[in-house]
Design a protein around this nucleic acid. Structure first.
Length: 594
DNA sequence: GCCGTTTTCGGCCCGACTGTTTTCAGTCG
């Protein structure tokens, strides 16, 4: 994992743990919330927390005051802070883990610990099975059975689902439930509407005057496996596929907007908006916007009305993380976020010459069918032997094929390119002279993931310094849920990209989404172009660009920040000044610009 | 612990559902 992300998440974990432990011992809830808020703020920092502490910019981050700052200093110096260590002696790791079981909160943990001496999830399960929990205050047979089920679910299902897996299921439910006549409005809410890279559960919101009919239809959907809970307006189920939890909420149509805003979150964004409302004498809930002390709604049919009530324009869901979007909305400087239709082409596509499944011609046709103006064929290079990567001779043949297919199809421009391996030393897997002849060069790390951060960073920067690299592919190498990013200092990579005129890829494959949104934002701020590519290995993969667009939007990117929103002539003009001079005697025929 | 159009103290977002109660605590989002 890159050092700065590792550092931030390590520091954040300590504050999360403090919040959990303080909850168990029954501390002041606002103090607890402050620790949670600080933890979240640190997780979302654009830079390393240590760097920001040194630069003095950490103090300006909302939620970080002098108390947190002092603890951060301690943590960075010694690896922990005093009161965390003290609490840790009082509250063991087992108690913390118990809180992660659905339905078990701090009060229950404290109860079973003080009454029964239970300190672990295993101990809790044993006590429940032996019927020891049912006798505790405010506990009964049902609670005990629920805890047994919840522990089983906890063991079965720990991780989050990729957006690419969860979103299609969510959309299918919206589609199916939308058929119900009682449904007047319906939309996804929660993190799937904000298009987070991973999803814990799906939230579906319906506007209707007939909640019972809507919920009857919902629980009868063929996708539904079991019903967890059902009330008058709220219902939770598990789906058959992957056991994904779906929460349905039904509200009256006149408060659909307020509810949509509320259930879309994020929590931090909502708190900030409500706080803003409060300062204006307004109470904002999922039922609308109310003047303090009255029940008269002054808005809430649409989200726009909610924002307008606190003096703001509409903020796109992808930005709602309380990461400056409210301030930008206030100042009128919200970005005009990139949309699917802004992309003119895909600059990272594989064929069956290496590890793709389809011939070059089919990939190009698929691109044309999606309305792309251009597509770059970028198969692997020879270092990636398991994919039968191209050597210079095979590459030259492929270039000829590209020219021939382009001529034959006539409906899409095809760039002859490569995804060349960056060797451990930072040298490229093919000669600079051969790469210089290509229309587009993606350079990627596919091996030696365990180099030190210094070596990995130097390796990537050295590759960029060759002058022939147009774009760094999947810059951190992360595979969501499977592989952490390799150790690399992205601050330095972004800085080098700015200096050397190299673009960074936002790989749209749902398990990569690499660059992540904070670094997209950082690239945008220093003028490094981002390229939204699918890395397609089959024709159907080209449609995955939507997930790249979602992530780009979460990274505040406008069309102008993304290289492949530009016409091909502009891309050629962008790369040309950086390319090393060609050997003068061997004059190759240059392609004419369109 | 944080923060300030309520500015250095006194607030801090708001409501649904469940299970165990007979008015509410705990949990979740």
């Amino acid at each position: 994992m890159p050092a700065q992300i590792r550092e931030n998440s390590e520091v954040a974990v300590i504050f999360h743990e403090m919040a959990d432990m303080l909850e168990i011992i029954g501390e002041n809830p606002f103090r607890i919330r402050a620790f949670r808020r600080a933890a979240q703020a640190i997780e979302n920092l654009p830079e390393g927390v240590g760097t920001m502490l040194e630069k003095g910019t950490l103090a300006r981050v909302p939620g970080i005051g002098s108390g947190i700052m002092g603890r951060v200093e301690q943590i960075l110096e010694t690896g922990d802070c005093e009161d965390h260590a003290t609490l840790r002696e009082e509250v063991g790791a087992g108690l913390l883990e118990m809180m992660r079981v659905e339905g078990i909160g701090p009060k229950t943990v404290k109860l079973v610990y003080t009454e029964l001496g239970i300190q672990t999830v295993d101990g809790l399960e044993a006590a429940a099975r032996q019927g020891h929990l049912a006798g505790l205050p405010r506990m009964g047979e049902k609670s005990q059975a629920k805890i047994i089920d919840a522990i089983a679910a906890y063991r079965r299902h720990t991780g989050r689902l990729l957006l690419g897996e969860a979103l299609p299921q969510g959309m299918a439910i919206v589609e199916a439930l939308g058929q119900e006549p009682a449904v007047e409005q319906i939309d996804l809410a929660g993190s799937s509407r904000r298009r987070r890279e991973t999803i814990g559960d799906l939230d579906v919101l319906v506007g209707s005057t007939q909640a019972t009919a809507v919920m009857d239809r919902f629980v009868a959907l063929p996708q539904v496996n079991d019903v967890m809970l059902r009330g008058d307006t709220k219902c939770s189920v598990h789906l058959k596929q992957g056991g994904l939890q779906v929460d349905l909420r039904v509200v009256r149509p006149e408060c659909f907007g307020a509810a949509l805003h509320y259930f879309t979150g994020s929590k931090m964004h909502n708190i900030a908006i409500r706080d803003r409302g409060k300062r204006r004498g307004l109470r904002i809930s999922e039922y609308g916007v109310f003047r303090e002390g009255t029940d008269e709604s002054i808005g809430g049919r649409t989200e726009e009305e909610v924002f307008a009530a606190v003096g703001l324009p509409f903020i796109p869901p992808e930005l709602r993380e309380n990461q400056g979007e409210i301030e930008a909305a206030e100042a009128g400087t919200l970005p005009r976020l990139i949309e699917d239709g802004d992309l003119r082409g895909d600059l990272h596509v594989h064929t069956d010459a290496t590890d793709g499944t389809a011939p070059l011609e089919e990939m190009a046709e698929a691109g044309a069918a999606l309305g792309f103006e251009y597509i770059a064929i970028t198969d692997h290079s020879k270092a990636l032997a398991m994919t039968q990567g191209l050597d210079e001779a095979r590459l030259a043949k492929q270039v000829d094929l590209v020219r021939e297919v382009e001529q034959r199809l006539g409906e899409i421009e095809i760039l002859a390119g490569i995804e060349v391996d960056i060797l451990p030393t930072g040298e490229l897997d093919l000669s600079v002279a051969a790469l210089r002849e290509l229309d587009w060069v993606v350079a990627s790390v596919h091996s030696h993931f365990k180099l030190s951060e210094e070596e990995q960073t130097a390796r990537i920067i050295r590759a960029m310094e060759s002058g022939v690299v147009d774009c760094i592919g999947h810059p951190t190498g992360r595979v969501l849920g499977q592989r952490d990013p390799y150790a690399v200092d992205l601050d330095r990579v972004i800085e080098a990209a700015a200096r050397l005129g190299v673009a960074l890829e936002l790989n749209a494959f749902p398990d990569r989404l690499d660059l992540d949104p904070p670094h997209c934002r950082q690239a945008r701020e220093v003028g490094v172009p981002v390229v939204v590519n699918t890395d397609a290995h089959a024709p159907g993969h080209l449609a995955l660009r939507e997930f790249g667009i979602y992530t780009a939007r979460r990274g505040w990117l406008e069309p102008g920040d993304v290289l492949n929103t530009r016409p091909l002539s502009a891309i050629r003009a962008w790369r040309e000044p950086r390319l090393p001079a060609k050997p003068s005697k061997k004059k190759t025929k240059k392609r004419k610009n369109p």
